[in-house]
Design a protein around this nucleic acid. Structure first.
Lengths: 144, 144
DNA sequence: ATGTAACCGTTGCGATTGTAACTATCAAGC
DNA sequence: GCTTGATAGTTACAATCGCAACGGTTACAT
């Protein structure tokens, strides 16, 4: 008989924490901006690291290329994102935010900073940074 | 111009860590046991806390009731889970593992313990427990 | 007992997902 | 220039998801 504690099983605990945090943040931006979670993630990556191609985004963030392709279509329809055919490699498209996309991204980053602060409100600053560092260490543990 | 760092935005970092960890563990049990992630989560909750009803499971783990309903159907078809109509309240069904379900659950908990250990291999014991505690604190921050 | 409201779990539906196949483009060898 | 193999991104398909509606059961007030 093994002793096993589901609540302290790291993948389960991470899933629960991530699910709650994503859901909580979605409640803030979801209705107001009409974005799904995946759209949000794609938008933020483009806003933060763009212009970049879909495959670069896929490598960076680990998203599936179909997920990106479809999220970009939706963001393009909202006129928040533009695709410009790469002139070095015409298979790729550089993804960038439009003016409206940038404005919304700005607003969203403010909401994000506020939400992050509220989640970590009773954390010491050092605890918060060490938590983030630990999460990165765990991610690094896992082969692609 | 706000300064915002996606990599240190907690919901994003949590999502990434959870995704990698779930995917990594899925690579271990997925093929061998033929389980999806949601099936795994339902199975483990029944194994750890069963017998319990679907709604009790939903409250405990925060899963959607349709997710549970469908996962239970699949686990029942594998003869790993049994549903017994509650005799106090005949709307509910007590979910329990069958003999075979228990055997597989045992094997899976061992794999889970090994995987958890490998993820935390270069963590001090104290760091690991504090990480789990911090995750729970964050979850507690979020209203249902 | 009877009606009303609340609850449990299932199912239909539209939306979203990943896998696999596809088109288009590029790079390398000859 | 032409073929071969790899890569970028889209699309078809089946599976899964959450929402809403449903049938069946319970609790409670009248």
């Amino acid at each position: 008989m093994t002793d096993f504690d589901l609540e302290n099983f790291l993948p389960y605990r991470l899933y629960q924490a991530a699910e709650r945090a994503s859901e909580g943040f979605h409640r803030i931006y979801g209705e107001r901006f009409g974005l799904s979670r995946t759209e949000w993630r794609v938008l933020f990556n483009i806003g933060q690291y763009g212009p970049l191609s879909a495959s670069a985004l896929s490598k960076r963030a680990g998203f599936h290329k179909t997920q990106i392709s479809r999220a970009v279509v939706r963001l393009e329809n909202k006129r928040w994102v533009e695709r410009v055919a790469g002139h070095d490699d015409r298979r790729t498209h550089d993804l960038t935010l439009t003016g409206e996309g940038k404005r919304n991204f700005q607003e969203l980053t403010q909401l994000a900073n506020e939400y992050s602060a509220s989640l970590l409100s009773d954390f010491e600053h050092g605890d918060a940074t060490s938590l983030l560092a630990q999460l990165r260490r765990i991610e690094a543990c896992i082969a692609e």
